[in-house]
Amino acid sequence: MEGFRMRALSAMVIFSAAAFVSGCAATIDQSGLEQRTVQAIGRPVGQFSIAERSEETGGRINYTVHTPEGASYRCYLYGATGFQKAMTFGQTPHSDAICTAMAGAQSRGTPAPAAAASRARGGEACNALLKAAGRC
């Protein structure tokens, strides 16, 4: 009888561990990743490719985006994990994609969007706050 309890307990521990580990992976598919990337980089689906996708625990997905013109972006987003979806009955949304243009990654002499921003006095990048303050 004692052996049966040990086997049952072992099976339950293994099942629980497998359920926990499988619940840590993000549940967003390629289409969802592309749609969020469209919003982040301002290009329609088909005008970029997604490469080097990797997932971290907690649902963070890191990836690189390349355009035919040679532009390159490093992006990430948080996708709801299986565990999060189960605990919220599927109501946990995925985040928006956050993308950063990689400097020097564009061809044809076109500067990356971050470098293309006009410069403020003193060499600082001109952003919306500096523009509103009349500093650039």
Rank of each mutant, 00 (worst) to 15 (best):
S72A: 10
E124A: 15
M6F: 10
R135P: 05
F20A: 12
F89N: 11
Q39G: 14
A26M: 04
G79F: 12
G134Q: 02
E2T: 12
C136Y: 12
G79D: 11
I61V: 15
Y78S: 14
I28K: 00
C126R: 03
C126H: 03
K85T: 05
T92I: 03
T110I: 11
R36T: 02
E124L: 10
G122M: 13
M87Y: 11
Q30P: 00
Q47A: 07
V65Q: 06
A17H: 04
P93R: 08
G58D: 03
T110G: 02
I98T: 10
P113A: 08
I50K: 03
A117N: 08
P68C: 08
A8V: 08
Y73C: 07
A51S: 10
Q39P: 00
L33A: 05
S22L: 12
K131W: 06
R74C: 04
Y73F: 14
Y76N: 14
P113C: 10
A97C: 07
G90I: 00
Y63R: 06
A86E: 09
S16W: 09
C75F: 04
A133H: 09
T37G: 06
M102N: 09
A97K: 01
F83H: 13
R43M: 14
K85I: 12
T57D: 04
G59C: 14
A51N: 10
S49M: 06
F83V: 11
F15P: 00
E69V: 00
A112G: 07
A97L: 00
Y73N: 07
V38R: 08
A18K: 02
A101P: 05
T88R: 15
Q35N: 07
R5A: 14
A40W: 02
E55I: 09
I41A: 04
G32M: 05
A112F: 00
A116Y: 00
Y76E: 11
V38F: 03
H66F: 04
F20G: 07
A128R: 15
A115H: 03
G23H: 10
V45D: 12
V21W: 13
V21Q: 12
I98S: 11
V38T: 00
T100N: 05
T64E: 13
